[in-house]
């Protein structure tokens, strides 16, 4: 059972030295392990039948990595949340990267392309229960044509690649990061710039994005 501590006690104990520090680190490690296991328990499908012992071992590794990250960032804790809430996010972050990596291992991102643009749009629209009216259908096709044109002509190769992977093939951000040997901020920026161009492209073709959205939602 872990000891309950105030934020100040955590910050003091974790660097106090001696048994006070040892006990605090052991307690923090247990909490981080529980956070990693909690994330794994919500995402068991991604482990695709891996044995429980292996999953628990992965959680132990995540807890250790998260513990190191927390200790390295202690000076960044601003005190605007409980210390444990702040610390849990490191464990969840490490666990999420591990889960996504497990789910996508052996899949080559390079094989995922935009060559079948129209089919990709159709795949994304699965789940639409209503058959659109001919007029609505024509407008939908026009919106998709504009989006396709912007993707092919306006985006840089990197923006297009990241957008296609993440939006059309649902590749997780961290897998894109790993594949490009990049970081989350850089990949998010590529996607953000791509969205800005798509928004501008629709507006330039006379489509207010809000109205465009209503073309694809349920008819009123």
């Amino acid at each position: 059972m872990t000891k309950t501590r105030t934020n100040q006690e955590w910050l003091y104990d974790l660097v106090a030295g001696g048994t006070l520090q040892d006990d605090a680190i052991a307690d923090l490690r247990e909490l981080l392990l529980r956070a990693a296991l909690y994330f794994f328990s919500r995402n068991l499908d991604d482990f695709q039948g891996a044995d429980p012992e292996g999953i628990h071992q992965r959680a132990e590794d995540c807890a250790q990595d998260a513990l190191i990250a927390v200790m390295n960032h202690l000076q960044d804790f601003r005190g605007d949340s409980k210390f444990t809430t702040w610390a849990y996010k490191f464990a969840i972050n490490v666990a999420l990267v591990a889960v996504r990596q497990e789910r996508w291992k052996g899949i080559s991102l390079d094989a995922l392309e935009f060559s079948e643009g129209k089919n990709l749009f159709e795949r994304m629209m699965q789940g639409t229960s209503e058959e659109p009216t001919p007029e609505r259908s024509a407008l939908q096709t026009e919106v998709q044509r504009v989006l396709q044109e912007v993707i092919q002509r306006e985006l840089t190769d990197k923006q297009r690649q990241v957008l296609v992977w993440m939006v059309f093939y649902e590749v997780p951000l961290d897998e894109v990061v790993r594949h490009l040997r990049s970081n989350r901020n850089a990949v998010y920026k590529l996607l953000h710039d791509a969205r800005r161009k798509l928004k501008m492209g629709l507006e330039q073709h006379g489509f207010d994005v809000g109205e465009t959205l209503s073309l694809f939602g349920p008819s009123r």
Partner: peptide, 29 residues
């Protein structure tokens, strides 16, 4: 469907958006 959610993301795109690091820094708060 996914297409509608993506259009929503395009619609809600801002000129300036915070980065993943900034989000990570603030998410516990």
């Amino acid at each position: 469907n996914r297409f509608e959610r993506w259009l929503e993301n395009i619609q809600n795109t801002q000129d300036e958006e915070i980065s993943c690091s900034e989000c990570f820094d603030g998410v516990s708060h």
